[in-house]
Amino acid sequence: MYPNDGFHELERQECLRRLAKVPVGRIVYTRQALPAVLPVSFGVDGDGAVLLRTSAVSELVRAIDGAVVAFEADDVDAARHAGWSVVVTGTATVVTDPAEIERLARTGPVSWVPSPQEVFVRIEPELVTGRELVGGRTLYGVDLTV
């Protein structure tokens, strides 16, 4: 990042706070040795972990359980040329503890595509980065879109 490029870095706590405000993000994982990106609904747990709720027999679960993945979410205001993006990188694991599953069934995310056999996947936030663009098409208060 270069000085005065219109972006500023977001602190970890601010990244997690913003992440919790949006309903959909993208999980980045490896499928057949190639990068894959899939939009998913999600939630953020109290410790900052990203939580997914999906079919226990899905290709996604098989591909990410025990793997390092990236998760990205953002919010963009196209009219103002502004927005932010947060990326969480960490290990994804299927939640297996019965007490934790019970807690997440009450408080965790709801899948947009319900399945008879659902599991929760937790992405531990090992690396959390984010940045924000504020008024990307203005310079010193002058609108550059004219």
Rank of each mutant, 00 (worst) to 15 (best):
residue 78 A to R: 13
residue 94 V to T: 13
residue 83 G to H: 11
residue 1 M to A: 13
residue 136 G to H: 08
residue 31 R to E: 02
residue 94 V to N: 09
residue 63 A to N: 12
residue 39 P to G: 09
residue 97 D to G: 09
residue 112 W to Y: 07
residue 58 S to N: 12
residue 15 C to W: 00
residue 140 Y to N: 15
residue 51 L to A: 08
residue 143 D to H: 12
residue 34 L to G: 02
residue 19 L to V: 01
residue 95 V to C: 04
residue 146 V to W: 13
residue 19 L to S: 03
residue 60 L to A: 09
residue 81 H to Y: 10
residue 65 D to Y: 02
residue 71 F to G: 08
residue 40 V to N: 11
residue 3 P to R: 11
residue 70 A to W: 01
residue 125 P to C: 06
residue 37 V to T: 08
residue 68 V to D: 02
residue 42 F to L: 05
residue 54 T to N: 07
residue 28 V to E: 01
residue 10 L to P: 12
residue 21 K to H: 06
residue 89 T to I: 14
residue 37 V to C: 13
residue 125 P to F: 00
residue 57 V to Q: 15
residue 112 W to P: 10
residue 64 I to W: 03
residue 137 R to E: 08
residue 77 D to H: 15
residue 9 E to L: 06
residue 109 P to W: 15
residue 113 V to G: 04
residue 62 R to N: 06
residue 87 V to P: 07
residue 80 R to F: 00
residue 66 G to S: 06
residue 82 A to R: 11
residue 121 V to H: 05
residue 76 V to H: 02
residue 99 A to M: 02
residue 86 V to H: 06
residue 20 A to H: 11
residue 15 C to F: 05
residue 114 P to F: 08
residue 107 T to G: 02
residue 144 L to G: 12
residue 84 W to V: 00
residue 97 D to N: 11
residue 54 T to F: 03
residue 35 P to G: 09
residue 61 V to Q: 11
residue 8 H to P: 02
residue 67 A to L: 00
residue 105 A to T: 06
residue 10 L to T: 03
residue 73 A to W: 00
residue 41 S to P: 13
residue 99 A to P: 07
residue 44 V to R: 05
residue 68 V to W: 01
residue 17 R to H: 08
residue 31 R to M: 11
residue 29 Y to W: 04
residue 87 V to Y: 09
residue 34 L to Y: 09
residue 47 D to V: 03
residue 118 E to D: 09
residue 22 V to N: 04
residue 136 G to L: 04
residue 26 R to I: 02
residue 139 L to N: 11
residue 74 D to W: 01
residue 130 G to K: 03
residue 137 R to S: 13
residue 71 F to A: 05
